[in-house]
């Protein structure tokens, strides 16, 4: 791991496109960082990213008939408004 020391207000630059600035450190030791990155770069807190990644991977692993059958048992609300979404029709 590359280790860099920075003071409040100083920045590091990654690949010429991503800038991370140390905004402040409070007495509890919480460091506030400001990240500037192009829209094509996704920035997440690491532990949240890991959790979301795990949930997506877990979701992608299910077999189709099981999913449909299980969801049928769930209590869901009717959605009143029409949701306009370009979708591909699955032929029966």
């Amino acid at each position: 791991m590359l280790v860099i020391s920075r003071k409040v207000g100083e920045e590091i630059c990654i690949d010429g496109m991503v800038t991370i600035r140390v905004l402040g450190i409070d007495p509890r030791g919480v460091v506030r960082l400001g990240v500037e990155a192009p829209r094509t770069v996704a920035v997440h807190r690491k532990e949240l990213y890991e959790r979301l990644r795990q949930l997506n991977v877990q979701a992608a692993r299910r077999e189709l008939p099981e999913v449909v059958a299980q969801l049928r048992l769930a209590r869901l609300y009717r959605v009143a408004q029409k949701v306009k979404l370009p979708a591909v029709k699955v032929e029966p």
């Binding site: 996704a42 795990q54 997506n56 992608a60 449909v68 969801l71 979404l85 979708a87 029709k89 699955v90």
Partner: peptide, 27 residues
């Protein structure tokens, strides 16, 4: 998806598939 999907960052093109029989599920 310009940044892909979390956990599947290498994938950029997706479609939503639905059918009456699967409602309200969309893939």
């Amino acid at each position: 998806f310009p940044t892909g999907l979390i956990g599947f960052e290498q994938l950029r093109k997706f479609v939503v598939a639905s059918s009456q029989a699967m409602e309200p599920l969309k893939w």
